[in-house]
Design a protein around this nucleic acid. Structure first.
Length: 397
DNA sequence: TCGAAGTTTTACGCCACATAGCGCA
DNA sequence: AATGCGCTATGTGGCGTAAAACTTC
């Protein structure tokens, strides 16, 4: 039934991608079950925060290349293709959790981007192996003054927030530590990014006020929450409803809506220095931003709730029926496929006959005599097959 | 810069059969 | 209402393979 559904009823992947105007299969996958308004928000999040993936292949034709823009920080840092997944996943995770609470059937839906969302991924996130996953969050190590200025508090590198991305998204991203805290959120503190430090569970934290030459402070992931609390206590927390902060980060409304060179602003890269908005028109004045300023207590509660949910996640494959798994594990296989019991019995009998003949021949001198386990080894799944199919054993006895 | 060739990665179908779930008597 | 029977759909894991993605020349 499922096959019939997918093959006959459901749009083909490519077709659906064209329909949805999404170039990313993952994004299309997400939209499959997010068509109740949430999908709109998600789509908005994708289109506004991840420019390269925002348009379909047709739309991309207007640009010079369909490939994501590459960051050119400095010579000693390899260029990394931009990927919208981490931030998007962070946003999505928070959104989906709410959806799952509302709709139990989502349990049957495979989790999106499990790898990125898996708890263990955080351990690797700070390592080099996974750094490209967060390419959009990398900050330049260049000595370019302009880029350095981008890293400072006065000219923050900010993550433009998608219309419809609510506070939950924000706290989710904050809790994961992959969304910039700079600019729109924490203009005085600098951007938090995954560091190049290979130590697990640590993130680099750029602090414009730091005495460190790089202005970078390394925090444990567990410290992020503490940092959040600290900032709340200092009254420095700003939501993205704060128009002042957003002005510095994103004052060009048209640019926001177009998605335009969002990545340029985010990364301060893409080969050329980011273009600072020429006007002071705040995009937050747009009616699409309907946000509520939360109190420190509410914010803390949301973050705590998110972290709690995250920790309670089960990212491993869900086995609905353990008995079926046991059976499947013990079921005989032929080239990976389940084999009939009769076929196995016949094959075993045949093997046993050959074994008997071969044993008579090779066993004369005691050499080259095959052990019964060698024959059994040719039958996939035979190791666990003795629970029921005793015929194979009996045939040798 | 482009294209061909080769390599690697990813996604999915296939298989048998116990079992859940349903309708019917 | 409870029980038994028959039928169908579902779920389970490892392997092969096509397709996609990537690399090299």
């Amino acid at each position: 039934m499922m096959k019939m559904f997918f093959q006959e009823d459901a749009p083909q992947p490519d077709e659906q991608l064209r329909i949805e105007g999404i170039s990313s299969p993952i994004a299309a996958h997400i939209l499959d079950f997010c068509d109740d308004g949430l999908g709109d928000n998600l789509l908005a999040a994708v289109t506004s925060t991840s420019g390269p993936f925002a348009a379909s292949s047709e739309d991309v034709s207007s640009s010079s290349t369909a490939t994501p823009p590459l960051c050119s920080y400095s010579d000693d840092i390899p260029e990394m293709p931009f990927s919208p997944l981490p931030c998007f996943d962070s946003t999505l995770s928070a959104l989906l959790e709410e959806e799952q609470n509302a709709c139990p059937e989502t349990e049957l839906i495979p989790p999106i981007n499990e790898t990125l969302a898996a708890p263990g991924y955080y351990q690797a996130a700070a390592g080099e192996a996974s750094i490209e996953q967060f390419g959009q969050s990398r900050l330049p190590q260049s000595s370019d003054p302009l880029l350095a200025m981008q890293m400072s508090s006065t000219a923050p590198i900010s993550m433009p927030l998608a219309p419809g991305c609510d506070e939950e998204c924000l706290t989710a991203a904050l809790a994961r530590g992959y969304m910039s805290l700079d600019g729109a959120l924490y203009p005085q503190t600098g951007a938090m990014i995954p560091s190049y430090n290979t130590e697990a569970s640590k993130v680099g934290f750029f602090n414009g006020n730091s005495a460190n030459s790089n202005g970078m402070v390394v925090l444990d992931m567990s410290d992020i929450g503490e940092y959040q609390r600290m900032m709340e206590g200092e009254g420095l927390t700003r939501t993205y409803s704060d128009t002042d902060s957003m002005k510095g980060a994103y004052s060009n409304t048209a640019e926001m809506q177009n998605g335009g060179n969002n990545q340029d602003l985010i990364n301060g890269c893409n080969g050329s220095p980011p273009t600072l908005p020429p006007t002071e028109t705040s995009g937050l004045e747009d009616s699409t931003f309907k946000v509520v300023r939360l109190s420190a207590e509410q914010r803390k509660e949301k973050i705590h709730r998110y972290i709690k949910k995250r920790n309670e996640r089960n990212f491993s494959k869900k086995i609905k029926y353990a008995c079926r798994k046991t059976l499947a594990d013990s079921r005989p296989r032929v080239r990976g496929r389940f084999a009939k019991n009769d076929e196995l019995c016949e094959a075993t009998r045949s093997s046993s006959q050959n074994h008997e003949q071969y044993g008579q021949i090779a066993g004369a001198d005691g050499e080259n005599m095959l052990d019964s386990s060698d024959i059994l080894a040719h039958l996939s799944g035979i190791n666990n097959y003795s629970y029921k199919y005793n015929c194979t054993i009996e045939s040798w006895i």
